[in-house]
Simulated assay, not measured.
Amino acid sequence: MSAQGAAGTDGRERIAPSGAGLVGQVFEGNVADYADRPGELLSLLEETGLTLVGVYTGANFVYPDVLPDELAKVTRTAELAARFGAERLVVGGGARRAAGTREEDYDRLGAALDKVVEIAEAHGLDSSYHPHLGTIAESPAEVEKVMARTRIGFCPDTAHLAAGGGDPAELIRRYPDRLAHVHLKDIDLTTGEFLPLCRGSLDFKSVLDAVREAGYDSWAIVELDAYDGDPKDAALVSRAYLDRLLG
């Protein structure tokens, strides 16, 4: 299992060495920034020895009138991901309506995610769905509604799953054959604060045991959504902790 990468704490990934490992995943905006100058990013990746494993994008998916535009954005992201050598397309989304979620929203989300699979496959990418706070896939029951309606792979984000009331290890064990990408992220469940690995509430030994049981032996991306401290220090703390667990 490769446990590498650290997200920026301002909501965008850093395409630069963190001092702690390889950057594994960036956001759609990062690759879009280089759409008109691809050679610059490719040179940067080569010079720094970084591996771009995946690109993340999100969409609301549940509103039929804007779905074509949302899928066009996903398609553009997939094109750029493939151009820059990524292997995976990771998507989140499924808007939570102000008036309340409708059951058909899950049907629409599932159908849209199947189209994401087709878009990814057309560009030589694997695809996975990332349940996320603020969407209609927060709680374990909501995640199940989504997963039952689509064939897309599963990308567990440990902090978001836990904050939604789930046990990340149990949810990984629930979908072993769907496990396609992994986000390792810690959180203080009392305060909701995202923290470096081992500084929050989550049991990563249990998580990694579940990942191994699923037969997954690939990238585990370390992330930190927001943090008041130094990002590099946070990355080093997480890396040292994972080295101990994986050693």
Rank of each mutant, 00 (worst) to 15 (best):
E118P: 02
V55G: 03
D233I: 09
P196E: 04
D114C: 01
V91F: 10
A59S: 12
G85K: 04
P196S: 04
A3F: 13
R12G: 11
D114Y: 00
L202S: 05
I187Y: 08
I172H: 03
W219N: 05
A98W: 10
G247I: 07
D107C: 09
G49N: 02
Q4D: 12
G39P: 00
T135N: 04
R12Q: 15
R12D: 11
L41Y: 10
R97N: 11
M147F: 09
P17E: 10
V91D: 04
L161I: 15
A235N: 06
D126E: 15
Y63H: 14
N60T: 13
R83P: 10
D65N: 11
G24W: 04
G153W: 06
R151M: 09
S206I: 02
R174A: 15
A137F: 06
T9D: 06
S218Y: 14
A72E: 13
A141R: 06
L45E: 10
A98G: 00
A210Y: 13
A86L: 03
E87R: 12
C198V: 12
A240D: 15
R244S: 13
I119A: 04
L242P: 09
L52N: 02
L80N: 04
I119T: 13
R239S: 13
D107A: 12
H183I: 05
G164W: 07
A210M: 04
D203V: 01
R149V: 09
F204A: 09
V207F: 10
R12H: 14
V62A: 02
V222E: 11
E142C: 05
E193N: 12
L189H: 00
V91Q: 02
P131F: 11
A3D: 08
D36C: 00
D105S: 02
H130T: 06
L50F: 07
V66A: 05
K205Y: 14
L52R: 01
G166A: 05
L67Y: 05
A220Q: 14
R108A: 05
A162C: 11
L80K: 02
D157N: 05
G110M: 05
A99N: 09
S218D: 15
E87F: 00
G49C: 06
A32R: 14
M147W: 11
L246V: 13
N60D: 15
Y106F: 15
L189Q: 03
A35D: 12
T75W: 12
V74C: 12
F204T: 07
L195H: 03
G93V: 02
M147I: 08
A59H: 11
A32W: 13
A20G: 14
Y129C: 04
E170V: 05
Y56M: 10
G93A: 04
V26E: 09
D233H: 01
G29A: 14
L236S: 11
